[in-house]
Amino acid sequence: MNDFLIILIKTCVIYGGLIGAAALMTLAERKFSAWMQLRYGPNRVGPWGLLQPLADGVKFIFKEELCPDGANPWIFRLAPILSAVPAMLTVAVIPFAGDVTLFGVDCGNLSITDLDIGTLFLVAIGGLSVYGVILGGWASNSKYSLLGGLRASAQMISYELSLIMIILCIVAMTGSLDLRAITESQNTGNPLSWNVFSQPLAFVIFVIATFAETNRHPFDFAECEPELVAGFHTEYSSMKFALFFLGEYCAMIVMACLTTTLFLGGYSVPFWEDAPWFIELGSFCAKAGFFAFLFIWVRWTLPRFRFDQLMHLGWKVFLPLALANLLVTGAVISLA
């Protein structure tokens, strides 16, 4: 009973944190973009505009729900769910910190579950989020949405390949698919044992591929405002649109967490091997927060690619590089 309660509380805390972080991320996106363009950004709702996501949420709820004529209503409704749920599910396997002891109660590790196939689970479920985009694009009965959906499907499959190859390198180095084992292998108190230093090329490819995987700038061809109005969610309104939004931001946060775990030693603290759990959690949040900021930073810096350039980059540059990286990693491991 006690174990069940602990797991329930951990799940609530982590999902609450995820949704809160996603809400905060929408605000951060607008704030940082404003600052980079010498503006203030939202600053009317609450102190520093902190309650802006709340106001947005209320606005979304009260907007009219539209379903376009000739659209397939069931798939039209299914798509936003398929977009948001996989992105939220994947956070279940991310290890946020080590052993947590709260009020003298040992609560176990700070993660919903330490699946021994955590990486695989993350990739498998994360790969499903493409359906929300494709089906949403198809079911809208709109040419812009359809084109956005088609692009998204081609793009996400292409980049998922390189992404998985890179994850394989890390898995081969650690010898485990468990994200906590991957973290622990880097948690030696010495930051040089983080995978980013042994796999710099993989790190760069991985970070860029996550941008394509989450449909973010400079690879946001699924939306691509100048060409496709708003891409796959052109016809969506109200909470259905908000769900797409939530899915995108949750996917970004999960990808930031994954990058942290795979390459920056997860919750490990530099020069302090057995840090208490809240320091570890802080360390994790700082690193993941940097990558979340990177998503925003890049979006407001770089122009969008052309679609053929994207495919060129994915198939002719990243995939061979990732494969070569895997080959070299394998060779080094087998020789050592």
């Binding site: 600052w35 980079m36 363009q37 010498l38 503006r39 203030y40 930073w297 407001w300 810096t301």
Partner: peptide, 10 residues
């Protein structure tokens, strides 16, 4: 763009 974040706002 990062440097611009700390410039005075217009």
């Amino acid at each position: 763009t990062f440097a611009k974040m700390f410039k005075p706002k217009v």
